[in-house]
Amino acid sequence: MAEKTTLGLPGKSSSYGQVGQAGASTGHIVGQTGKSVPVRVEGLNRIVAIAAGLKHSLALRGDGTLWAWGYNNGQLGNGGSDSRNGPAQVTGLSGVNRIEVSCNHNLALVGNKVKAWGFNATGQIDDNSTINRHTPVDTQGIWTGRVSQAAVG
């Protein structure tokens, strides 16, 4: 994968820090607004993929680690529920090949297995529950076996 410049997302609201601007590191950021031009996300380098959900963003580094920021109802994958406007490493993941982001949950392809975390009210994490997952978990069902690509909707 070619290296990409790490950018925030222009024109998107940043009420939860999902644009990745410097400042307060947790919680809802009062008065934070979207940007009309791309901004650099501080604290990240060697980014090979970036993706955005409704109120959160993910960045995949070339070393296979995954970083997240923005609103957090589990989607940041750091074990807590505090929102962040700067990147923090997703807990327990290494060797990530691909990422997919939905509004409120994420998938990561690690080898040929799919990990998922975030909002899970209707079972979208595919872990045989409807419990929000604040760290990545193994998916069940159709995701078992050899997987080369995953998508969310």
Results as ranks from 00 to 15, higher is better:
Arg46Gln: 05
Arg46Thr: 02
Ile47Gly: 02
Ile47Ser: 01
Val48Asn: 12
Ala49Cys: 02
Ala49Gly: 00
Ala49Met: 06
Ala49Gln: 11
Ile50Ala: 11
Ile50His: 04
Ala51Trp: 00
Ala51His: 00
Ala52Cys: 09
Gly53Arg: 11
Gly53Thr: 11
Leu54Thr: 04
Lys55Trp: 05
His56Lys: 06
His56Met: 04
His56Leu: 06
His56Ser: 09
Ser57Tyr: 08
Leu58Met: 03
Leu58Phe: 06
Ala59Pro: 07
Ala59Lys: 03
Ala59Asp: 05
Leu60Arg: 04
Leu60Val: 09
Leu60Cys: 08
Arg61Pro: 13
Arg61Tyr: 13
Arg61Glu: 14
Arg61Thr: 15
Gly62His: 09
Gly62Asp: 08
Gly62Leu: 07
Asp63Ser: 08
Asp63Thr: 10
Asp63Asn: 14
Gly64Trp: 11
Gly64Cys: 10
Thr65Gln: 13
Leu66Cys: 10
Leu66His: 10
Leu66Lys: 10
Trp67His: 10
Ala68Asn: 12
Gly70Met: 11
Gly70Thr: 12
Gly70Ile: 11
Gly70Cys: 10
Tyr71Asn: 00
Tyr71Cys: 00
Tyr71Phe: 02
Asn72Gly: 01
Gly74Val: 10
Gly74Asn: 09
Gly74Asp: 08
Gly74Tyr: 10
Gln75Gly: 08
Gln75Trp: 04
Gln75Ile: 01
Gln75Glu: 13
Leu76Ser: 13
Leu76Gln: 10
Gly77Leu: 05
Gly77Thr: 07
Asn78Ser: 08
Asn78Thr: 14
Asn78Gly: 05
Gly79Gln: 10
Gly79Ala: 11
Gly79Arg: 07
Gly79Phe: 09
Gly80Met: 05
Gly80Tyr: 04
Gly80Asp: 12
Gly80Trp: 09
Ser81Cys: 03
Ser81Phe: 11
Ser83Trp: 06
Ser83Ala: 15
Arg84Gln: 05
Asn85Gly: 15
Asn85Tyr: 00
Gly86Ala: 01
Gly86Val: 12
Pro87Arg: 07
Pro87Ala: 09
Pro87Cys: 08
Ala88Tyr: 09
Gln89Met: 15
Gln89Lys: 15
Gln89Cys: 15
Val90Ala: 04
Thr91Tyr: 15
Gly92Gln: 10
Gly92His: 07
Leu93Tyr: 14
Leu93Lys: 15
Leu93Cys: 07
Leu93His: 14
Ser94Gln: 15
Ser94Gly: 15
Gly95Val: 11
Arg98Ile: 05
Arg98Leu: 13
Arg98Gly: 03
Ile99Arg: 00
Ile99Met: 01
Glu100Asn: 05
Val101Ile: 12
Val101Ser: 11
Val101Met: 06
Val101Asp: 02
Val101Leu: 03
Ser102Glu: 01
Ser102His: 05
Asn104Trp: 15
Asn104Ser: 12
His105Arg: 07
His105Gln: 05
His105Glu: 06
His105Met: 09
Asn106Gly: 07
Asn106Ile: 08
Leu107Met: 03
Leu107Ile: 00
Leu107Trp: 01
Leu107Tyr: 06
Ala108His: 11
Leu109Glu: 00
Leu109Trp: 01
Val110Trp: 15
Val110Gly: 15
Gly111Cys: 00
Asn112Cys: 09
Asn112Trp: 05
Asn112Leu: 05
Val114Trp: 06
Val114Phe: 04
